[in-house]
């Protein structure tokens, strides 16, 4: 293999690694957006949904030996219930909901969830079997894990379901209506509090899916939530808050940039790279690369 070819293989390898992580950031960012659109707040417990999804899946498949499909469904349901409980118990009862108050509540929920996860699953990191073979596939000299293909495929499915839900179902249309103009939506008889609850449920569900599919490649532990949440938040901002197609593109982009940085500069700086990108976006184009500045001005946050 000559040096030019070797360089190309490296590049492709970094690219695969980036896509794998980027898909996860994209899903976390979609979760952020869903709650942001319904309530105007950033849910800092979003990363915790991912962790809960991963850890629950580990318990169901590795300890209880349930089949993957069944465990997948049960795990998503479990995290959805956690999301709904979070909204009903901590967000809904707030007498005078302001953006700041609600955000601080989500930080509290994230700390509590993290603590509970530590008590239940312990401090160690948890290994989980890959969905199919763990043998890397050869791709012109570079390798790709079958799990990465699963991650990409499931992201596509989630995006398709998302688009279908918001454009072709009445409930989805009503959620959009509620985020565009809450007063008009209430007049049309839409219960806005119910839509907020639904946004937490969906957002928790997407978080759970992200946690489930990434756990075989990163080994989940209870502290992972903060960093996953932060990267997902970066992707959401990069894509323009509230813009979910932007979030998917930005998530994948962020993952790839991070992997390239880790590969060509130093893997020590991997987390820093994503955050530096986030800072630059906030300095230069706070509405995100895919967001319109006009839409941004209309939002309260």
């Amino acid at each position: 293999m000559n040096p030019a070819e070797a360089n190309l293989v490296d590049l492709v390898q970094f690219f695969f690694m980036g896509i794998q992580r980027g898909c996860i950031y994209a899903m976390v960012a979609m979760g952020f957006n869903m709650i942001y659109n319904a309530t105007g707040i950033i849910n800092f417990a979003q990363g915790e949904f991912v962790v809960l999804g991963g850890l629950m899946m580990v318990s169901l498949t590795m300890a209880l030996h349930l089949p993957i499909v069944l465990a997948f469904i049960l795990t998503v349901l479990f995290v959805v219930v956690v999301g709904v409980l979070m909204e009903r118990l901590t967000i809904n009862p707030v007498k005078q909901p302001t953006v700041l108050r609600l955000i601080i509540i989500t930080i509290a929920v994230s700390i509590i969830t993290k603590g509970a996860a530590m008590m239940f699953w312990g401090k160690g990191s948890h290994y989980m079997n890959h969905f199919s073979s763990a043998e890397p596939l050869d791709f012109h000299g570079a390798t790709i894990l079958p799990q990465t293909l699963w991650i990409m495929g499931i992201l596509l499915l989630v995006v398709a379901a998302y688009v279908f839900f918001f454009n072709f179902t009445m409930t989805g249309k009503c959620m959009r209506a509620c985020s565009i103009n809450r007063d008009a939506a209430r007049l049309a008889g839409i219960d806005d509090r119910k839509m907020v609850m639904l946004s937490f449920a969906l957002s928790a569900g997407i978080g759970a899916v992200a946690g489930i599919i990434i756990t075989p490649v990163i080994q989940m532990d209870y502290t992972r939530g903060a960093m996953l949440g932060l990267k997902g938040f970066g992707a959401a901002v990069l894509g323009g808050l509230g813009n979910s197609t932007g979030a998917v593109a930005a998530g994948v982009l962020l993952g790839v940039l991070e992997a390239l940085g880790a590969g060509y500069i130093s893997s020590h700086y991997m987390d820093a790279i994503a955050l530096v990108i986030l800072l630059f976006v906030l300095f230069i184009r706070p509405s995100g690369i895919f967001g319109s500045s006009e839409a941004m001005r209309l939002k309260e946050f």
Partner: peptide, 15 residues
């Protein structure tokens, strides 16, 4: 008070 970035038909469907 309408939903400006939804289509006219969708506005009524939400109603």
């Amino acid at each position: 008070q309408i939903f400006p970035n939804m289509s006219v038909l969708e506005n009524i469907m939400v109603g």
